[in-house]
Design a binder for these strands. Structure first.
Length: 643
RNA sequence: GCUGGUGUAGCUCAGUUGGUAGAGCAGCUGAUUUGUAAUCAGCAGGUCGCCGGUUCGAGUCCGGCCCCCAGCUCCA
């Protein structure tokens, strides 16, 4: 038969040869580096024997699917090692993930780090054994027999959940056989560099009502150097962690007495938030938004109308017995029902629309205790909140305007190339979580999809991520550890206007409900600050830096001139400090540099005489002397956001 | 909320088999007047996360709670 290769050439192959044999016939080097193959676009094992003409691509570690196969096999090797060392461990699932793999085990006592060392050592033995990884398929009843004989109840459950017509495949390496769809690499010897990274609990099937299993995370590479580079990158990420440098640089702190998820913003962090908030509010002003300031709490009656009482009660801080008589208040988890009251305060005409309300809004959400993380996930936060009421024919343009504003903010912060877009839809299988009918959801989601496609955004779709009242466009970003969070969200709401009785009088004198867009422009300020700190490793761009320059007198003879310079720059609106301590200039520079202050202005006798200052930048070191006016011009050029 | 890890000076961390707590940095005082990433000396600093238990005696052992970290679940 004829096999067409990636380069367009084709070779003829006898029946019964494996893809690995084909790779060998192309080149020995390719065969040694090969991990998996793509046959007619479908990823396959190298031990697969083609039986018809096909297009073939041999996959190495450079291909994501090749990496995936290597790490998937590494997870099987880990499971095999665990079964050798702990025969009573029950196997759950063990996939490859973005940077590695994991396997979930049901064990009496969870694994600890000495266990991981033992498992790693056993894995090394399995790799040395160079066991071939062979695939076979079984009919459903035989497959169930096999896993029953193995004593693997989780595998039984997995098989029972497979669709009627599913092919049930197993992979066998030495004494170890695992239910698995594959693909896998041809033998365990190809796992040249691997490491087990951590152990943690994880729910069976991701369901918090089900049993907690013990998950071991690891990663695998084909070269030791690549593994070392990966571990080095992990350490570098830890050095950028906002939760670490945000505290070191005194942006924020926490205390045991205040409570979880309630960070204290220190002068520097508070300053950055103030700069961001002013920037956002000013820009929204220019875009026709109407600023509101609404209460932080309300009676439960308000939340009953909005649906929060029924759908979000767990997440709210409630004052008093929620089911008791009399007045019960709750802190607001969202601004919507409050800002709606502004709309409702008088009769609105179609001529009034669109109306765009914004608010720098503090919200309170009672997150579960294990979910807090630095400034990224907290219980009280401030969001660049906004709600737009518009006519159906205005929806697309207003939505577009919200996306444009969000992108403007991301560009200003330098985060625009770090985000991805997610169209978050409801889960039709879990209607309890949402309000409204399937027809309503289908129609508004179709409408939103049309708008998104019109915007030519590169987005993914995700079921079950919608708000309880409508679908969302989420702008997602990853933190320094790779964990994804929503930075900005823009939501189309077709239901709350009706619930709240929000109406406008149309041209024909009839009353209609407007569409509502819920949106943020820069997201939640605390989270945005956290991501900025991580993005810039604490060295925020000049326009955001809490201290933009520090004046460093060399001796106390220039203390007066240094203080005068600081005052002059401050009067111009720049954030400038002076370091009057009796320390050597090298010491003062070291400290300013560690504080990531953009400019250090060295002022000694020489400068006092010449009227210039010696300027040092945190990025480029000593950049020479200049007059104060020249420096002011330099500051001016850099002190606006890049939009 | 769940699983695991952790908690000792402002910060980073030592602290042996249970015998009464230590370093570096930061701070304070003094000296030094310094030219582009750490000047020297001295001083002070602790309810060993909190509460309870075992013990003649607990930072160390046991129990409960709290906080912090990673992951799961959840979410801006």
């Amino acid at each position: 038969m004829q096999i067409t290769l990636k380069d367009g050439n084709s070779i003829s192959v006898e029946a019964g040869k494996t893809l690995l044999d084909v790779a060998e016939s192309i080149s020995g080097g390719l065969a040694r580096a090969a991990l998996a193959a793509r046959v007619d676009g479908k990823v396959t094992d190298l031990l697969y024997k083609p039986d018809a003409d096909c297009a073939l691509e041999i996959l190495t570690f450079d291909d994501p699917d090749g990496r995936h196969a290597l790490r998937h096999t590494a997870s099987h090797v880990m499971a095999q090692a665990v079964k050798r060392l702990y025969p009573t461990a029950k196997l759950a699932i063990g996939p490859a993930i973005e940077d590695g793999f994991y396997y979930d085990f049901d064990v009496e006592t969870p694994f600890s780090s000495p266990d991981l060392e033992k498992i790693e050592a056993e894995m090394s033995r399995i790799v040395k054994e160079k066991l071939p990884v062979e695939r076979f398929e079984l009919p459903r009843d035989e497959a169930l027999d096999l896993v029953a004989k193995q004593g693997e109840p989780y595998k039984t459950e997995l098989i029972n959940d497979l669709p009627e017509d599913a092919v049930i495949s197993f992979y066998k390496q030495g004494e170890f056989t695992d239910l698995c769809a594959g693909p896998h690499i041809p033998d365990t010897g190809r796992i040249k560099a691997f490491k087990l990274l951590s152990t943690t609990g994880a729910y069976w099937r991701g369901d918090s009502t089900k049993k907690v299993l013990c998950r071991i995370y690891g990663t695998a590479f084909t070269k030791k150097d690549d593994l070392n580079a990966y571990i080095e990158a992990l350490e570098e990420a830890r050095r950028r962690d906002h939760n670490r440098i945000g505290r070191e640089l005194e942006f924020f702190t926490t205390t045991d007495y205040i409570g979880q998820g309630l960070p204290i913003l220190m002068p520097k962090g508070a300053k950055v938030l103030q700069i961001l908030q002013r920037f956002v509010e000013d820009e929204e002003d220019r875009r026709g938004y109407l600023l509101t300031k609404t209460p932080f709490m309300a009676k439960r009656d308000l939340y009953k109308i909005s649906g929060h009482w029924q759908h979000y009660r767990e997440g709210m801080f409630i004052m008093g017995d929620p089911d008791g008589e009399g007045e019960v208040f709750a802190l607001r988890p969202m601004t919507c029902p409050f800002q709606f009251q502004v709309y409702l305060s008088k009769t609105r005409s179609y001529r009034d629309l669109p109306m765009r309300f914004n608010e720098t809004s503090t919200l309170f959400r009672n997150e579960a205790s294990g979910e807090m993380h630095g400034l990224i996930r907290v219980r009280q936060f401030t969001i660049s909140e906004g709600h737009l009421a518009c006519l159906p024919e205005q929806l697309e343009e207003e939505f577009r305007g919200c996306v444009d504003l969000a992108m403007y903010m991301l560009r200003a912060c330098g985060l625009d190339s770090d985000v991805s877009f997610r169209f978050s839809k409801w889960d039709p299988a879990n209607t309890d979580k949402y309000i409204g009918s399937a027809e309503q959801w289908d129609s508004v989601q179709a409408l939103m999809k049309q708008i998104l496609d019109g915007l030519e955004l590169d987005y993914t779709e995700s079921e079950g991520e919608a708000a309880f009242y409508g679908p969302k466009l989420d702008i997602q970003i990853r933190n320094v550890f790779g964990k994804e969070d929503t930075l900005i969200t823009i939501q189309v709401d077709f239901q709350l206007a009706e619930r709240f009785g929000m109406e406008y009088v149309d041209r024909d004198n009839s009353k209609k409900h407007p569409y509502i867009i819920h949106r943020t422009s820069i997201g939640c300020y605390e989270r945005t600050l956290a991501l900025l700190i991580e993005k810039y490793a604490g060295a925020l761009p000049l326009w955001l830096a809490p201290v933009q320059a520090v004046v460093l007198p060399i001796t106390d003879r220039t203390h007066g001139a240094a203080s005068d310079l600081r005052d002059r720059l401050r009067r111009l609106g720049y954030r400038v400090d002076v370091d009057l301590r009796s320390e050597k200039i090298g010491y003062k520079i070291r400290e300013a540099q560690n504080q990531k202050i953009p400019y250090m202005l060295v002022l000694g006798d020489k400068e006092a005489e010449s009227g210039e200052i010696a300027v040092r930048s945190r990025a480029d070191g000593d950049i020479g002397s200049m007059t104060v006016d020249e420096f002011i011009q330099k500051l001016g050029e850099q002190s606006r956001p890049p939009v």
